[in-house]
Design a protein around this nucleic acid. Structure first.
Lengths: 170, 170
DNA sequence: ATGCATTTTCACTAATTACTGAAATTACAG
DNA sequence: CTGTAATTTCAGTAATTAGTGAAAATGCAT
């Protein structure tokens, strides 16, 4: 593996680590993203010096996150994987999956807790805090939903606009 | 601790876990956020059944993340902590801290890798992928920077607008 | 300075998470 | 079907991360 690719793969593994994605899976994904040709499990196992079984687990995880596409190559029995060519699609998938795992369950719990009648002052205060958080998170996710419908071009335009939005608003 | 508060604290601990924040620290923060009065280490230790030393570590971590304010109460030698009253401020801090830890180092690495001259086709392809990612991430962080300057009111207005932005743009 | 309350540090243990190799399963060509 | 390549599962082990208690350090009132 070329040094350039290796540095990126290494770094991505470290980062994955901080994101709750395990190091090996992070490395695997970095490798797949940077590969023009579809990649198979043996290649990952060899290039990243990771056991074949570990690669299998990792691929399963990447598939469950919808981050890779499985494809077959004619005359070859192996499974090959690629990452989407559009990085914005990758980002979108990542954001959605994280939200499903990290935000939605929290909203559900909060919604339930807000239904309870407060029994004392401390509960009343706690609920008001939870409500504030709930509203903020709900606004943000709702907004993110809508943003995702934008085409890459519209998105780029909006991002460039930046805080200019505030001018448009006023 | 009342059941309502306890459920929230428990859940937040679990979630913190998925975010790379450790469970106990997550619980501690949830407890502080829901407390109207400033909280001291002994209270946390007692309410969450966690060793006093562990609380000390956790508070240090929360302070390093700028998520709590230390304050003293007259006639009391203990350190007391509170969370900011504005939830948007908490969110902003959280986003910034995560970015500092998770995004910025990646951008630095990518920038460096993009300076290298590609030595073969695979490196050329890898660089083009890295460049795509770099541009996307840079746009998003730049945009997030500017959004953070909005007042809570402007923010609410923008969030409500949602995809309506696209109409404004065209 | 001395003594006491509080906080921090740190070596150790507990718990969790990641990884492996061997065995089992699947899936396809002949 | 049968044989073989490929993949998956899983029990065991390694590595990492979290949590504790005891001891050290800090800081303040007297």
């Amino acid at each position: 593996m070329s040094p350039l690719i290796e540095s990126f793969v290494r770094h991505f593994g470290e980062m994955g680590n901080r994101w709750g994605i395990n190091r090996t899976v992070g490395q695997m994904y970095a490798y797949i993203v940077l590969s023009e040709a579809p990649v198979n499990a043996d290649e990952l196992s060899a290039e990243l010096s990771v056991s074949r079984s570990n690669v299998s687990m990792g691929l399963k995880e990447l598939q469950s996150w919808n981050l890779v596409r499985l494809q077959h190559i004619a005359g070859d029995r192996k499974d090959y994987f690629t990452a989407p060519e559009d990085v914005w699609e990758i980002a979108r998938t990542l954001l959605n999956e994280r939200r499903k795992r990290e935000i939605d369950p929290t909203l559900t719990v909060m919604r339930e807790l807000l239904m309870d009648k407060p029994t004392d002052t401390s509960e009343r205060y706690a609920q008001s805090r939870i409500e504030d958080m709930y509203k903020l998170i709900e606004m943000m996710t709702h907004w993110s939903d809508e943003i995702q419908r934008l085409s890459p071009k519209q998105l780029a335009r909006m991002l460039k606009l930046g805080a200019g939005v505030s001018k448009l608003l006023s």
